[in-house]
Protein backbone atom coordinates (compact mmCIF):
# COMPACT_ATOMS: atom_id res chain seq x y z
CA UNK A 1 0.00 0.00 0.00
CA UNK A 2 2.83 2.38 0.90
CA UNK A 3 4.27 2.02 -2.59
CA UNK A 4 1.18 3.58 -4.14
CA UNK A 5 1.11 6.49 -1.73
CA UNK A 6 3.66 8.22 -3.94
CA UNK A 7 1.59 10.74 -5.93
CA UNK A 8 3.62 10.40 -9.15
CA UNK A 9 3.34 6.62 -9.16
CA UNK A 10 -0.33 6.81 -8.26
CA UNK A 11 -1.04 9.21 -11.13
CA UNK A 12 0.68 6.91 -13.62
CA UNK A 13 -1.53 3.98 -12.62
CA UNK A 14 -4.67 6.07 -12.22
CA UNK A 15 -4.35 7.61 -15.67
CA UNK A 16 -4.07 4.15 -17.19
CA UNK A 17 -7.09 2.88 -15.24
CA UNK A 18 -9.33 5.91 -15.82
CA UNK A 19 -10.67 5.15 -19.34
CA UNK A 20 -11.45 1.57 -18.33
CA UNK A 21 -13.47 2.42 -15.23
CA UNK A 22 -15.23 5.22 -17.08
CA UNK A 23 -16.17 2.85 -19.91
CA UNK A 24 -17.23 0.12 -17.48
CA UNK A 25 -19.45 2.61 -15.68
CA UNK A 26 -21.21 3.69 -18.88
CA UNK A 27 -21.79 0.09 -20.03
CA UNK A 28 -23.03 -1.11 -16.63
CA UNK A 29 -25.30 1.92 -16.19
CA UNK A 30 -26.88 1.31 -19.60
CA UNK A 31 -27.36 -2.43 -19.04
CA UNK A 32 -28.34 -2.13 -15.39
CA UNK A 33 -30.85 0.67 -15.90
CA UNK A 34 -32.44 -1.13 -18.85
CA UNK A 35 -32.71 -4.40 -16.92
CA UNK A 36 -33.75 -2.76 -13.68
CA UNK A 37 -36.24 -0.20 -14.90
CA UNK A 38 -37.69 -2.00 -17.95
CA UNK A 39 -36.79 -5.65 -18.41
CA UNK A 40 -36.95 -7.02 -14.86
CA UNK A 41 -40.22 -8.34 -13.40
CA UNK A 42 -42.28 -6.37 -10.85
CA UNK A 43 -42.25 -7.60 -7.24
CA UNK A 44 -45.04 -9.85 -5.93
CA UNK A 45 -45.76 -7.45 -3.05
CA UNK A 46 -44.50 -4.06 -4.18
CA UNK A 47 -45.33 -4.10 -7.89
CA UNK A 48 -43.28 -1.62 -9.93
CA UNK A 49 -42.25 0.38 -6.87
CA UNK A 50 -39.52 -2.23 -6.35
CA UNK A 51 -37.55 -0.54 -9.16
CA UNK A 52 -36.56 2.25 -6.76
CA UNK A 53 -34.48 -0.40 -5.00
CA UNK A 54 -32.11 -0.66 -8.00
CA UNK A 55 -30.93 2.89 -7.33
CA UNK A 56 -31.44 3.00 -3.57
CA UNK A 57 -29.39 -0.05 -2.64
CA UNK A 58 -26.25 0.69 -4.74
CA UNK A 59 -26.35 4.29 -3.45
CA UNK A 60 -26.56 2.99 0.12
CA UNK A 61 -23.66 0.57 -0.43
CA UNK A 62 -21.56 3.32 -1.97
CA UNK A 63 -22.32 5.74 0.87
CA UNK A 64 -20.83 3.25 3.33
CA UNK A 65 -17.98 2.14 1.05
CA UNK A 66 -16.92 5.74 0.45
CA UNK A 67 -16.98 6.60 4.14
CA UNK A 68 -15.02 3.47 5.10
CA UNK A 69 -12.27 4.19 2.58
CA UNK A 70 -12.14 7.83 3.74
CA UNK A 71 -11.71 6.65 7.34
CA UNK A 72 -8.87 4.33 6.33
CA UNK A 73 -7.28 7.21 4.41
CA UNK A 74 -7.65 9.42 7.49
CA UNK A 75 -5.84 6.83 9.63
CA UNK A 76 -3.07 6.55 7.02
CA UNK A 77 -2.77 10.35 6.92
CA UNK A 78 -2.55 10.65 10.71
CA UNK A 79 -0.11 7.78 11.25
CA UNK A 80 2.08 7.69 8.15
CA UNK A 81 1.51 11.25 6.87
CA UNK A 82 0.83 10.01 3.35
CA UNK A 83 0.21 13.09 1.22
CA UNK A 84 -2.14 11.17 -1.08
CA UNK A 85 -4.43 10.02 1.75
CA UNK A 86 -5.68 13.50 2.57
CA UNK A 87 -6.15 14.35 -1.09
CA UNK A 88 -8.20 11.17 -1.46
CA UNK A 89 -10.45 11.89 1.53
CA UNK A 90 -11.16 15.41 0.30
CA UNK A 91 -11.81 14.13 -3.23
CA UNK A 92 -14.20 11.40 -2.11
CA UNK A 93 -16.24 13.41 0.41
CA UNK A 94 -18.68 15.17 -1.97
CA UNK A 95 -19.23 11.88 -3.82
CA UNK A 96 -20.06 10.11 -0.58
CA UNK A 97 -22.40 12.91 0.45
CA UNK A 98 -24.10 12.64 -2.95
CA UNK A 99 -24.57 8.87 -2.64
CA UNK A 100 -26.00 9.30 0.86
CA UNK A 101 -28.39 12.02 -0.28
CA UNK A 102 -29.52 9.81 -3.18
CA UNK A 103 -30.01 6.91 -0.78
CA UNK A 104 -32.10 9.00 1.65
CA UNK A 105 -34.14 10.54 -1.16
CA UNK A 106 -34.97 7.30 -2.98
CA UNK A 107 -35.66 5.58 0.33
CA UNK A 108 -38.13 8.27 1.22
CA UNK A 109 -39.84 7.98 -2.16
CA UNK A 110 -40.15 4.22 -1.63
CA UNK A 111 -41.31 4.52 1.96
CA UNK A 112 -44.18 6.85 1.20
CA UNK A 113 -46.28 4.32 -0.77
CA UNK A 114 -44.91 1.12 0.83
CA UNK A 115 -44.62 1.90 4.54
CA UNK A 116 -47.13 4.72 4.53
CA UNK A 117 -44.60 7.32 5.65
CA UNK A 118 -41.80 9.43 4.14
CA UNK A 119 -39.63 9.27 7.21
CA UNK A 120 -39.43 7.62 10.61
CA UNK A 121 -36.76 7.95 13.28
CA UNK A 122 -35.81 4.29 13.40
CA UNK A 123 -32.21 3.17 13.95
CA UNK A 124 -31.38 2.57 10.27
CA UNK A 125 -32.80 5.80 8.87
CA UNK A 126 -31.37 7.89 11.69
CA UNK A 127 -27.87 6.41 11.44
CA UNK A 128 -27.80 7.05 7.68
CA UNK A 129 -28.87 10.64 8.28
CA UNK A 130 -25.98 10.92 10.76
CA UNK A 131 -23.66 9.61 8.02
CA UNK A 132 -24.90 12.38 5.71
CA UNK A 133 -24.17 15.00 8.38
CA UNK A 134 -20.70 13.47 8.93
CA UNK A 135 -19.91 14.03 5.26
CA UNK A 136 -21.17 17.62 5.38
CA UNK A 137 -19.36 18.24 8.66
CA UNK A 138 -16.09 16.89 7.25
CA UNK A 139 -16.34 19.05 4.13
CA UNK A 140 -17.06 22.15 6.19
CA UNK A 141 -14.32 21.39 8.73
CA UNK A 142 -11.36 20.77 6.38
CA UNK A 143 -11.86 24.18 4.80
CA UNK A 144 -12.55 26.04 8.03
CA UNK A 145 -8.89 26.67 8.91
CA UNK A 146 -6.44 29.18 7.44
CA UNK A 147 -3.75 26.52 7.58
CA UNK A 148 -4.79 23.60 5.31
CA UNK A 149 -2.66 21.16 7.33
CA UNK A 150 -4.64 21.90 10.50
CA UNK A 151 -7.94 21.63 8.60
CA UNK A 152 -6.93 18.25 7.23
CA UNK A 153 -5.90 17.00 10.64
CA UNK A 154 -9.19 18.06 12.25
CA UNK A 155 -11.10 16.49 9.35
CA UNK A 156 -9.17 13.23 9.70
CA UNK A 157 -10.01 13.00 13.39
CA UNK A 158 -13.69 13.65 12.63
CA UNK A 159 -13.62 10.90 9.98
CA UNK A 160 -12.16 8.39 12.44
CA UNK A 161 -14.60 9.28 15.21
CA UNK A 162 -17.48 9.00 12.74
CA UNK A 163 -16.29 5.56 11.63
CA UNK A 164 -18.13 3.97 14.59
CA UNK A 165 -21.32 4.86 12.71
CA UNK A 166 -20.57 2.50 9.81
CA UNK A 167 -21.11 -0.81 11.68
CA UNK A 168 -24.09 0.80 13.41
CA UNK A 169 -25.69 1.46 10.00
CA UNK A 170 -24.96 -2.05 8.77
CA UNK A 171 -26.20 -3.90 11.85
CA UNK A 172 -28.93 -1.49 13.01
CA UNK A 173 -31.56 -3.67 11.37
CA UNK A 174 -30.34 -6.70 13.32
CA UNK A 175 -29.58 -5.19 16.71
CA UNK A 176 -32.85 -3.30 17.12
CA UNK A 177 -36.44 -3.39 15.91
CA UNK A 178 -36.55 -1.08 12.93
CA UNK A 179 -39.11 -0.24 10.31
CA UNK A 180 -36.41 -0.75 7.69
CA UNK A 181 -36.14 -4.35 6.49
CA UNK A 182 -33.00 -6.42 7.18
CA UNK A 183 -30.32 -7.05 4.53
CA UNK A 184 -31.36 -9.02 1.44
CA UNK A 185 -28.03 -9.57 -0.31
CA UNK A 186 -25.12 -9.58 2.16
CA UNK A 187 -26.59 -11.89 4.78
CA UNK A 188 -25.90 -15.31 6.29
CA UNK A 189 -27.78 -17.96 4.33
CA UNK A 190 -27.52 -16.23 0.95
CA UNK A 191 -29.57 -13.55 -0.78
CA UNK A 192 -33.36 -13.46 -0.40
CA UNK A 193 -33.83 -11.76 -3.72
CA UNK A 194 -34.78 -13.55 -6.92
CA UNK A 195 -32.01 -13.93 -9.52
CA UNK A 196 -33.94 -11.89 -12.12
CA UNK A 197 -33.86 -8.95 -9.69
CA UNK A 198 -30.38 -9.58 -8.29
CA UNK A 199 -28.64 -9.22 -11.67
CA UNK A 200 -29.75 -5.66 -12.45
CA UNK A 201 -28.94 -4.74 -8.85
CA UNK A 202 -25.39 -6.10 -9.11
CA UNK A 203 -24.85 -4.46 -12.52
CA UNK A 204 -25.88 -1.10 -11.10
CA UNK A 205 -23.66 -1.68 -8.07
CA UNK A 206 -20.69 -2.14 -10.45
CA UNK A 207 -21.85 0.95 -12.38
CA UNK A 208 -21.94 3.10 -9.22
CA UNK A 209 -18.61 1.71 -8.05
CA UNK A 210 -16.81 2.37 -11.35
CA UNK A 211 -18.42 5.80 -11.61
CA UNK A 212 -16.99 6.53 -8.17
CA UNK A 213 -13.49 5.41 -9.17
CA UNK A 214 -13.57 7.44 -12.40
CA UNK A 215 -14.70 10.65 -10.71
CA UNK A 216 -12.47 10.22 -7.68
CA UNK A 217 -9.42 9.80 -9.94
CA UNK A 218 -10.31 13.03 -11.73
CA UNK A 219 -10.80 14.80 -8.40
CA UNK A 220 -7.52 13.46 -6.97
CA UNK A 221 -5.72 14.74 -10.08
CA UNK A 222 -7.25 18.15 -9.52
CA UNK A 223 -6.42 18.01 -5.80
CA UNK A 224 -2.77 17.13 -6.47
CA UNK A 225 -2.51 19.92 -9.04
CA UNK A 226 -3.97 22.39 -6.55
CA UNK A 227 -1.38 21.31 -3.98
CA UNK A 228 1.43 21.87 -6.46
CA UNK A 229 0.12 25.32 -7.31
CA UNK A 230 0.04 26.13 -3.63
CA UNK A 231 3.61 24.94 -3.05
CA UNK A 232 4.86 26.91 -6.05
CA UNK A 233 3.12 30.06 -4.81
CA UNK A 234 4.63 29.62 -1.36
CA UNK A 235 8.05 29.13 -2.99
CA UNK A 236 7.70 32.34 -4.97
CA UNK A 237 6.52 34.33 -1.98
CA UNK A 238 9.42 33.07 0.14
Amino acid sequence: MHRFANPARFLKIANAVLPWVAGLSVVCFAAGLYLGLIASPPDYQQGDTVRIMYIHVPAAWMSMFTYSTMAVAAAAALVWKHPLAEVYAKAAAPLGAGFTALCLLTGSLWGAPMWGTWWVWDARLTSVLVLFFLYLGYMALVDAFDDPARGNKAGNILLLVGAVNVPIIKFSVEWWNTLHQPASVFRLGGPTIAASMLWPLLLLAVAFQSYFFAVVILRIRAGLAARRVQTLRLGQAG
Partner: peptide
Protein backbone atom coordinates in the same frame (compact mmCIF):
# COMPACT_ATOMS: atom_id res chain seq x y z
CA UNK B 1 -50.30 2.47 10.93
CA UNK B 2 -47.14 1.60 8.98
CA UNK B 3 -46.55 -1.49 6.88
CA UNK B 4 -43.26 -3.27 7.38
CA UNK B 5 -41.65 -4.90 4.37
CA UNK B 6 -39.55 -8.05 4.75
CA UNK B 7 -36.25 -8.66 3.00
CA UNK B 8 -37.69 -10.86 0.23
CA UNK B 9 -37.90 -9.72 -3.37
CA UNK B 10 -39.32 -11.93 -6.12
CA UNK B 11 -41.46 -11.76 -9.25
CA UNK B 12 -45.18 -12.69 -8.93
Amino acid sequence: LLAKHDEKYMPP
